[in-house]
């Protein structure tokens, strides 16, 4: 093979190649870290408030902690109830944050103020209360273990990847609908300014060791999309989020 060598010193070539590789890695790395920064939680993480009290469940003593959430028909309604978010437009949403941080091995009490209406569940299974202490939730002062599937507005369904590195955690809590006839002509999604207190749902569960879990709503509320599970349901930070136990 006869080739005509063009004069470039080999050291110059080497430097050029090394610089190119470093630049290449830097470019890919920059894009990667940009995506990483875009992956940040849309809202600041919400930490559970630890209390000094303890409680005994099934013979074991747990420290207590609590956390409060709201479910709103859209960001306007969220703002009206004091949970102003920068979230977009008309998406139904949990607030003030969808990233919850809970202490490990703790009796966590969650209070959800729920202000939305609803139709019926895709899968009636999620009308059942699962994984709470006592198997019940408290709706406006009444303990129930089940909400009929046509009376649910949203659910809080917490789950994770079963793994040897973290304890299993599965909680399903159905939230009852705010009905149009609860108050004259009240339609939650269209008139957020109505002075209506919604439903207050309280439940407790016990966290295991540290781990990463997710939660999402199982009520189809991504309007306009197939099975109503697109839009708000499939966009991270509205009807789905993370739960970090640590």
């Amino acid at each position: 093979m006869e080739t005509t060598t063009v004069e470039t010193s080999s050291s110059k070539r080497l430097i050029s190649a090394l610089v190119f590789v470093v630049l290449g890695v830097a470019v890919v790395g920059t894009v990667g870290f940009t995506l990483h920064s875009l992956s940040a939680d849309p809202q600041k993480a919400l930490y559970a408030t630890k209390s000094s009290e303890t409680i005994v469940v099934d013979g074991k003593t747990y420290p207590k902690a609590s956390i409060a959430l709201g479910v709103y028909a859209d960001s306007g309604q969220a703002a009206d109830y004091g949970h102003y978010t920068t979230n977009k437009k008309d998406y139904v949403q949990y607030g003030p944050s969808t990233h919850l941080v809970l202490p490990a091995h703790t009796f966590v009490t969650v209070t959800i103020s729920a202000y939305d209406g609803g139709e019926h569940l895709n899968n009636p299974y999620f009308g059942k209360v699962v994984g709470t202490v006592g198997g019940t939730i408290n709706i406006d002062g009444v303990d129930v273990s089940n909400v009929p599937s046509d009376n649910v507005q949203h659910t809080f369904t917490l789950h994770g990847i079963p793994s040897s590195s973290q304890d299993p955690l599965f909680v399903n809590v159905p939230l009852p609908q705010v009905k149009a006839d609860d108050q004259d002509n009240f339609i939650a999604t269209q008139d957020p300014k109505t002075n209506f207190k919604g439903h207050t749902v309280t439940f407790s569960f016990i966290t295991g060791g540290a781990g990463d879990y997710v939660w999402n709503c199982e009520y189809p509320c991504g309007d306009g999309s197939y099975a109503k599970f697109g839009a708000a349901m499939s966009t991270y930070g509205y009807m789905s989020g993370k739960v970090t136990v640590k």
Partner: peptide, 28 residues
Amino acid sequence: VGIGFIVLLWAVIHSWRKGDIAPMNPWG
């Protein structure tokens, strides 16, 4: 693999600009 392909990309760009001039039929 990623680094390998960056090196290949360098080789292509560098050789295209400054590589050895090829004969008409280098491989016979």
